[in-house]
Simulated scan of single mutants.
Amino acid sequence: MKAETVFIVDDDASICEGLSNLLDSVGIPTEQYPSAEAFWESWNDQRAGCMLLDARLPGASGVEFQEHLKNLGIGLPIIFMTAHGDIPMVRKVMKAGAIEFLTKPFQKQELLHAVAQAFEQDRTRRQEDSIVSTINARINSLTDREREVMAMVTAGLLNKQIASELSLSEITVKIHRRRVMDGMLAGSLAELVKMCERARFPSWRGPS
């Protein structure tokens, strides 16, 4: 994975250059893009960092681009900037998850503080994504029957209830349950439940 980078998306080349020079001076790598479309052409989800996004761009506006990224499940933290903001716009982008809304011209420390916040959020998000990916890999390593038993176990069913629902013996259920615990590397039922919740694995809700 490349170093944490600030992706500057603004159609004003002089602003991009100024922001880039400022951030480079404190050791923060930057990349510049004149439009949302230009950024999108080079993006891959292995990149780390945050986006410094002009709210009013030609083509897809910054506000529209934020919505597009969110719909695609791309959680790159966004810092908005504009010389012509208004209260409804600020409310909209902040409600949608923006880190900060900076009004041009803004102070160096304002920008650096927002970038530090954004980088921290991105690290947390990527760490969580990695954990969930590991949990999902364990879930996928289970057999269909083991996943079925896990759904029932995490829903709070007892072995005898699971045995009745699946027309199995309690001994067989206990074997499946042990394989689930081993396969998920879960040390306790509580830990198994937390992992399933984290990965949004659906628990059993009873016969349909």
Score class of each variant (00 low, 15 high):
residue 159 N to V: 11
residue 159 N to I: 03
residue 159 N to K: 08
residue 159 N to M: 01
residue 159 N to E: 06
residue 160 K to I: 10
residue 160 K to F: 13
residue 160 K to C: 06
residue 161 Q to T: 08
residue 161 Q to H: 11
residue 162 I to G: 07
residue 163 A to V: 07
residue 163 A to G: 14
residue 163 A to S: 14
residue 163 A to T: 11
residue 164 S to I: 04
residue 164 S to F: 06
residue 164 S to Y: 10
residue 164 S to T: 14
residue 164 S to D: 13
residue 165 E to K: 14
residue 165 E to N: 13
residue 167 S to R: 15
residue 168 L to T: 04
residue 168 L to Q: 10
residue 169 S to A: 09
residue 169 S to K: 04
residue 169 S to C: 03
residue 170 E to T: 13
residue 170 E to V: 10
residue 170 E to H: 03
residue 171 I to N: 09
residue 171 I to H: 11
residue 172 T to P: 00
residue 172 T to C: 04
residue 172 T to E: 15
residue 173 V to T: 12
residue 173 V to L: 08
residue 173 V to Y: 08
residue 173 V to E: 13
residue 174 K to W: 07
residue 174 K to V: 11
residue 174 K to L: 10
residue 175 I to V: 15
residue 175 I to T: 14
residue 176 H to N: 14
residue 176 H to V: 09
residue 177 R to V: 00
residue 177 R to A: 04
residue 177 R to M: 06
residue 178 R to H: 11
residue 178 R to P: 02
residue 178 R to C: 06
residue 179 R to I: 04
residue 180 V to K: 01
residue 181 M to P: 01
residue 181 M to L: 15
residue 182 D to G: 00
residue 182 D to T: 11
residue 183 G to C: 05
residue 183 G to Q: 05
residue 184 M to K: 08
residue 184 M to Q: 05
residue 184 M to I: 06
residue 185 L to S: 09
residue 186 A to K: 02
residue 186 A to E: 01
residue 186 A to I: 02
residue 186 A to C: 04
residue 187 G to K: 01
residue 187 G to C: 04
residue 188 S to E: 07
residue 188 S to M: 01
residue 188 S to T: 06
residue 188 S to H: 08
residue 189 L to N: 11
residue 189 L to A: 05
residue 189 L to P: 00
residue 189 L to W: 07
residue 190 A to P: 00
residue 190 A to S: 13
residue 191 E to M: 09
residue 191 E to W: 01
residue 192 L to M: 08
residue 192 L to Y: 02
residue 192 L to I: 01
residue 193 V to D: 03
residue 194 K to C: 00
residue 194 K to Y: 03
